[in-house]
Structures are given as structure tokens and as C-alpha cells.
Design a protein around this nucleic acid. Sequence first.
RNA 1: GUGCUCAUAGCUUAAAGGUAAAGCUCCGUUCUGUGGAAGCGGCGAUACGGGUUCGAUUCCCGUUGAGCACCCCA
Length: 474
Amino acid sequence: MSRPKKKTMTRLPRSPRGKAGGKAGKAGGKAGRQRRASPQAGRQRPASRQTGRKVKFQVPKGTFDILPNEQNYYERVSGVTKQLVSAYGFLPINTPIFEDVQLFEKGTGATTDVIQKEMYTFKTKGGDYFVLRPEFTPSIVRAYIEHGMKSWPQPVKLYSIGPIFRHEKPQAGRFRQFHQFNLEIIGEASPINDVLLIQLVTLIFKKLGIKGFNIQVNSIGCSDCRSDYKKLLIDYYRKQRRKLCRHCRERLKLNPLRLLDCKEEKCRQLANNAPQVIDYLCEECHNHFKEVLETLDELDIPYLLNPYLVRGLDYYTRTVFEFRLEDDSLLELAGGGRYDRLIELLGGKPTPAVGVAAGIERIISVLKSQDIKIPREVPPRIFLVHLGELGRKRSLKLFEELRNKGLKVAETLSKTSIKSQLKAADKSGAKIALILGQKEALENNIIIRDMKSGVQETVSIERVVSGVKKRLKK
RNA sequence: GUGCUCAUAGCUUAAAGGUAAAGCUCCGUUCUGUGGAAGCGGCGAUACGGGUUCGAUUCCCGUUGAGCACCCCA
């Protein structure tokens, strides 16, 4: 009987785990055993804090090590992102990974889940109350205000790539420390900016080779039209309160907009007949949204208008959008929207802005499940083998000379036997080995060995660089 | 945070209420100036704590961690 592939594998293949994308699919043996999902390859066993003897340290829950053989995925995603967004005039910015708690309580919104349930907060010895950033935007806005970027040419286009922290229950595709790339366009109200961000994320995904994702857009209006709409919505739902699920009755009090994307069948039916935001947009919001959609059409970017799309952060106004996988996981890869009031809210002058964030681990999991190969760094082509004390000393010097000439060389200086060194050379995939022994060192010669054919030639040490280069070209 | 499922070496798997087995990897060696093959050997595990039992890695409970669903989100 063949082992059933884990359901998640097709949609959320192990993130980074080393050899693994493929292998991980086998997890869950016949006993249904589950393997750890986090990205890293090996990991330590859980710690016993009592005994003090068998203590083994492990990564904190929901976090993971990114081992060497995973790095190329991260480099690929951030590389493609940097390349594309800088071509579109985005400038890099780094902000601290922790900030004053109030920045997020105010910015992200005190009623949001992110703030209510998921913050990593800590008090410092000095009495400061900080939080590991649960998202980028408030930090970027803080920096915009703090450094007077309003006097830079507008709009200010900024990008960041880095870790984000949310104290959530981990699941596949959901971690407590993960990475995002984040784009913000601050200082200009034009809908072209909303579209630019959607386009950039699309371009990045396409360049990475990701298939099968869709873009959903909606407008939730400005505070004016939304508050009118909210009243209507609350009226509508109040009348049918009994038909709502338990959660939705809570939502009705706290965050009525969220009623719209409840997944309960009953609630969905109610939502279908509920008033839709886009029908109640004020004229300006309506025009803004219309132009967003028209521009998307003009650019041939396919999108789904989802009138029930509501995002979880308080600061959004007008345009909101999401990138999701089209399989049944519906995994959200990126999300964003306009936040025209946030700068003001955080103490700046009223300034329009729009932003987007994408989850790097989720993107990587898609790269793996879609079997998209990442170009690997080429291994060293040359392996330096030494023999005897003199050979060893000289080889270190030679190593630097070769490196200096732009050749990528590998070695195992710690090994002494020629056998184990050639074995290592073989494993490294090197095309040629340079053998520097006692005899060669004394005669100022070196042996060039073709690893494939085994053919060797002794050349004078001065000619080693040209000899190597000649052979590498073949 | 709630519910369900799960946990054997670095990886992939096996067995069993009575000393836990193998393949891959790694290291060494046969072969101290020549790798890839082969042989031999070595390292290395029942996540942690407790209970039942003559005996638990196996059964039970708790903890930790993971997977799934919900919640929410990147």
C-alpha cells in the first residue's frame, strides 16, 4: 500500500526543510506519524527542564533554524524582490525589530487579533514596554514621520525584508517568527499606486515561477462612507441576529465588517443579501476604486472583485487586496491595502499611503510544492590537496593566491591523508584537483588532476593559474 | 486560544509488555603519494516526567513539540 501523501504537502509543503521538500512528503508513515513541519532539517529533542541532565535545547515553539541548504530559497525570494522593486524606484529601509507597544496598538489597531492576542511584548530594565514587530507598516510610518520624509520628493517608496513576530499557535505555513517583504508608497493618493503594488507583487510571483494564485480586491471606503455603511450593515444583521453563528454575534458588536467573511453556511447566506460596501461608497471613494479596477484592466492583471473582502487591520481605507493560492488551501501569500489615515493617526500630517506585505515562508512553500528549482550557487571547481607539512603550509598560501585571482577553491586542510582529501574533492564536485606534495613544494611544481578522467599533469607553480583556467574552460 | 491526531538514530523506515533492527548520511579503516566501487568497523534513538507492571520504548496520565480543523493571518 502506498503511503498517502500528506494532505498538506500539496498545498503547504514543508517549508525549508533541507533535503526535503520532496522527502517531507513521505512524512506520516503507516502509523500516521507526523513529522515536524518546521523548516529546519534536524532539530533537537524537547528539553526536560526538571532533570537537568537530559536537557536538550531546541528552537522555541513556532520558530526554526534556516540551515545552509535552505538559504538559497530565501536569497532567491529576496533577490527577485529587491531587483524588481528597486527598478520601480523603491528604496530599502530597515527599522528595529522591536518598537514601543503603543505604536502598534495605535497603528495596527487595539481591536485587531494581531494586537489583542499575538504580540510578543516585554518590559526592559529601564521600564520601556516594547513589542517584537507584528508587522512592518507602523514602523515604516513612524520612520516617515520621524525623519521628515514629507519633505522628500513624494511619494516615498520604501521596501523592507525581515523577520516578523506573532504569538500564534503554529501550523504549517504559520510561524511565530517568519519573514515578510513589505512595500509602502507614502504621500500620494493616486489609485495608480494601489495598482503598482498589485502589479509588483504579481511580477515578483511570476518571476519566481509561481502559478495558480489569484488576486482579490475590494474597497472598504473611507471613514465617512464606511461609518454610514456600518450602520446599515448593523441594522441588517440585528434583524436577523438569531440566524447568526455564535462568533458572528460577537462580531456584530466588535467588528461588524467581519461578519461578511464568516465561513458558516448560514452566515454566508445572510452575507449574500447584506448590503455591500461598494454600493455605499462616497463619490470619491467610488471613483478611486473605479480607477483602480480600470487600471488593473489596462495592465491585463486578472483580479476577482470580492465584495466580502475585509482585512484584519484597522487602518485600511479604500482599496484592500489579497493574493491567495487557488488550490483548496486558499493560502494567503500576500495582502495589503490603502491606509490614508494612519500617518495622521501616528502624529504626522494627513498623508495618503498604500502598502503590501508578503510571507516569504509561504512563498517558499509554494516554490517547493510547485517543484520550482532554485538556481544553486555553483560549487567550487577546484580542490586543493596537500601532502606533508611543507605542502600544507604552502597550500594555504596558494589558496589565497588562487582566490585572489577569482578562482573558487575548496580544501580540507585539516585532513592529512591524500585519500581522504581526494574523497572530499570528489564529493565537492570539483572538476580538478591541485595536488601539492612535499616533492612538488620543493621543486616549485604542482600536479593538476582532472577529477573525471584521472589524467594528471605536473606544471610549474607559476603556471598553475593559467593551467587551471584553461582546463576549466573545457 | 479550542478540538482531534501523532512522537523510534542526523534522515528514511522496522520490531516488540522481556537486551530495539536496518538502509542512507557521517567518521575511520582495508590502501600513511591518489577519489568514485567493495568489504570491515565506529558514532548514534524509543521526546520529557510520572503511573500500572516482576519488567514499559509498547498500556494510562501529564508536559513539550509537531500535523490538521476552527480562529485569525504572511
